[in-house]
């Protein structure tokens, strides 16, 4: 067997951190059950609040992202907060490089948020009759890129939050200004998808989302080291 190169070891440790989180999540189902129940509760509140009224399409595509944003805020800080609570931060610092930890956690949050968003969208489409997607490609692209962007920003904020005292309330407060450009663009793209725009019309939004993701992930991977090492 040949010796491992440094980047191979880096990829391996990032993947094993992802797998570690994945297995411990499957064992406790803490984040998944919290997120699923959050989404079910919020959507039923919206349905009850609307009653027999039908909300305009703009409001519906806005509310979808309100649900997604707060769902992310209720579950995505778990990966880092759990490490602090279990006291396993030191161990992780010893066995893996900071950037590998960051990308492992990012991957875990990404898988979690993509799954939750799919669930949210399905429920939303079933229960809110006015919400009919005309152009599916724009919608799929928006949900995918929006999830990646959401995971990117909320992972680094979660790392900050885990070190603070008031973890729960501070998380949405810190994340909102960072996520607002992303949310506004996603709401706009969702409206285009519901209105049945052509894929080329949403290209500006997609380019924006991709550049947002690239900038946030790059900056986070550099800055994470400072947060992680006490």
């Amino acid at each position: 067997m040949q010796t491992e190169k440094p980047y191979q070891r880096w990829i391996l440790s990032a993947i094993s951190i992802f797998l570690k989180d994945w297995h411990s999540e499957l064992r406790t189902r803490y984040a998944i059950s919290a997120l699923v129940m959050f989404v079910v509760t919020t959507i039923s509140v919206i349905v009850f609040a609307l009653g027999s009224e039908s909300a305009p399409v703009d409001a519906l595509s806005g509310m979808l992202w309100v649900v997604i944003f707060f769902a992310a805020m209720s579950g995505l800080s778990r990966t880092f907060v759990a490490e602090e609570e279990r006291g396993t931060v030191m161990t992780l610092q010893l066995v893996a490089e900071p950037s590998a930890v960051y990308f492992g956690k990012l991957l875990f949050n990404l898988v979690l948020i993509v799954g939750v968003n799919l669930f949210t969208v399905i429920l939303y489409a079933i229960f809110l009759n006015g919400f009919v997607i005309q152009s599916f490609s724009i919608f799929a692209g928006t949900i995918l890129l929006g999830s990646i962007g959401l995971a990117a920003s909320s992972t680094i904020i979660a790392a900050i939050i885990a070190k603070a005292n008031t973890k729960g309330t501070l998380y949405p407060v810190l994340s909102f200004p960072i996520l607002l450009p992303l949310l506004l663009t996603c709401i706009n793209a969702t409206r285009l998808a519901v209105e049945g725009a052509l894929l080329s019309e949403a290209m500006g939004e997609f380019q924006f989302l991709v550049s947002y993701i690239v900038v946030v992930v790059t900056a986070s991977s550099i800055l994470f080291e400072y947060i992680w090492k006490d």
Partner: peptide, 28 residues
Amino acid sequence: LRSAVEVEEKRATLAAVYSIIAAITMPF
């Protein structure tokens, strides 16, 4: 964020990181 962290060095580090992240998303 600053008021939620008691240890001085930690507070300074976290606040610095947050201000940098906020600054890079402002141009968007």
